[in-house]
């Protein structure tokens, strides 16, 4: 299986390393033509405005939308923002998931945090998942075909799934825990949607 990692900017290297530990061949995607032959794509953490600008300038928005309609995609933090319909400000988005996010919802960097969260959908379910939030967004609304996947103890939604599309506010690529990357690979193994 060949999985792409969007490499316009951000921590794409960490996603590649995680996938390679799982024996998956990875490709850095910087242009639309790099999507050829891939069975899934990860949108890494980074700055969503930077990635959105480069996607726009190099005509990647439509090819990425078409790819995400058929194949698995997973956005972490900035990637989750790019997958959403709305973030309350003008910036380029792929609008693939029925989600509305709020950027930097916890505040500035000094409010960035780590927390252990329960993950009944991952294999194995225990231990809890050590989630790292870096100026992270939250899911203000998850509607339509998208379903909430994880919440903080106060009920704030921090992960959502919509069929083969996955989005997390936090950064599994910054930990050595590979359960999330395995979960994504299961989504990528599903037959592409027509």
């Amino acid at each position: 299986m060949k999985i792409g990692v969007l490499a316009l900017q951000g921590d794409f290297r960490e996603h590649r390393l995680a996938l390679e530990k799982l024996g998956v061949e990875t490709v850095e995607v910087r242009l639309a033509e790099d999507l050829e032959g891939l069975e899934g794509l990860i949108l890494p953490g980074g700055e969503s405005t930077t990635m959105g600008k480069l996607m726009t300038d190099y005509d990647m928005l439509e090819p990425l939308r078409a790819f995400g309609a058929a194949y698995a995609m997973w956005g972490t933090c900035a990637g989750a923002i790019l997958l959403s319909q709305n973030v309350g400000r003008e910036q380029p988005l792929l609008k693939l998931m029925d989600t509305e996010l709020e950027r930097n919802a916890f505040g500035r960097q000094i409010e960035s945090f780590e927390i252990d969260l329960s993950v009944p959908f991952l294999e194995p379910q225990k231990p809890d998942y050590h989630a790292t939030f870096i100026r992270g967004p939250i899911f203000k609304r998850v509607f339509g075909r998208a379903k909430p996947l994880m919440t903080l103890p106060d009920g704030t939604i921090v992960a959502a799934q919509q069929g083969h599309l996955l989005a997390t506010s936090f950064h599994p690529e910054l930990t050595d825990d590979l359960r999330f990357h395995r979960y994504f690979l299961e989504l990528a193994k599903r037959p592409p949607e027509a």
Binding site: L8, D11, R13, T50, F113, E114, T132, I134, H171
Partner: peptide, 18 residues
Amino acid sequence: QVSSFEVKKGLAEMLKGG
């Protein structure tokens, strides 16, 4: 848990390639 070294370093990870 806020302000661990991992969280501080993590922001720099997000700036890479930029």
